[in-house]
């Protein structure tokens, strides 16, 4: 579904991604783990067209997308929940959800999708008129994921959804991700520092260090890998 081939992304003269290649198949959960500053978020932003790569190519369903604008890439069905959730702080919960469906014009379907979100997360319905910035971290994460789903993405990119959340909420968030993947057959690309949890729900995983992919394998193999255990699982 998504093929990233030898991309290199720069911030000014600094090369943040070095020859990164990875692939994601339809229906999978693939995770990208690595330490702070390894280039995980840059990888996602490169896929989304926010920081386009200088070299290499990105194919989505066989078509090159590395030169497309960010909004065009959303139209193709790639949506990102960025790190830190990025809720529109002064917009209500409802408006935040509506922004997720910004490119859609099927009003009735949007409304039923929003009702579905409220069914899944009753707390969001309770806070529907509340400003997004006043929600707790966990609620914001639910809102951010729901907002992305309102675009009906084929490929959902998640950047550190567990960041800054309480352990109990983290568990809940990972359950939600698994459920989204199971129920709506949405392909998920999950970037995480919480390697343990991420590998448990993922099919395959990549390990990133200093802007380059250093390991790739099936998730259960990575969980058992000594190197990964030592560096990321703290075992």
């Amino acid at each position: 579904m998504l093929e990233v081939r030898h991309i290199e992304t720069f911030y000014g003269n600094i090369r943040a991604l070095k020859n990164v290649s990875l692939s994601i198949n339809e229906g999978e959960i693939v995770t990208l783990i690595g330490a702070n500053g390894a280039g995980k978020s840059t990888t996602l932003m490169s896929i989304c067209g926010v920081t386009p790569p200088r070299h290499g190519e990105i194919l989505f369903r066989g078509e090159p997308i590395q030169a497309l604008s960010a909004e065009k890439i959303v139209t193709l069905g790639i949506c990102q929940v960025p790190e830190g959730r990025h809720i529109f702080p002064q917009m209500s919960v409802l408006e935040n959800l509506e922004m997720g469906a910004y490119l859609r014009h099927d009003k009735a379907a949007i409304k039923s999708d929003i009702d579905e979100v409220f069914g899944r997360f009753p707390i969001l319905e309770k806070r529907r008129q509340q400003a997004g910035g006043t929600l707790s971290g966990g609620e914001q994460q639910m809102l951010a994921i729901s907002r992305a789903l309102l675009a009906r993405p084929a490929l959902l990119l998640l950047d550190e959804p567990s960041l800054g959340l309480a352990p109990l909420i983290i568990k809940q968030i990972f359950e939600i991700i698994k459920k989204i993947n199971d129920e709506s057959n949405t392909t998920v690309f999950l970037v995480e520092q919480n390697a343990n949890q991420a590998l448990k729900i993922a099919d395959r995983g990549y390990v990133m260090e200093n802007g380059a992919i250093t390991l790739e394998d099936r998730a259960e193999n990575l969980l058992a890998n000594d190197q990964v255990k030592k560096a990321y699982l703290g075992i």
């Binding site: 989304c48 926010v50 604008s69 960010a70 959303v74 960025p82 990025h86 702080p89 917009m91 490119l103």
Partner: peptide, 16 residues
């Protein structure tokens, strides 16, 4: 409003 509040996120929901 979305662009004013969060420019990067505005691009990520498909706003030109």
């Amino acid at each position: 409003r979305a662009t004013q509040q969060d420019l990067v996120m505005a691009r990520l929901v498909g706003i030109n």
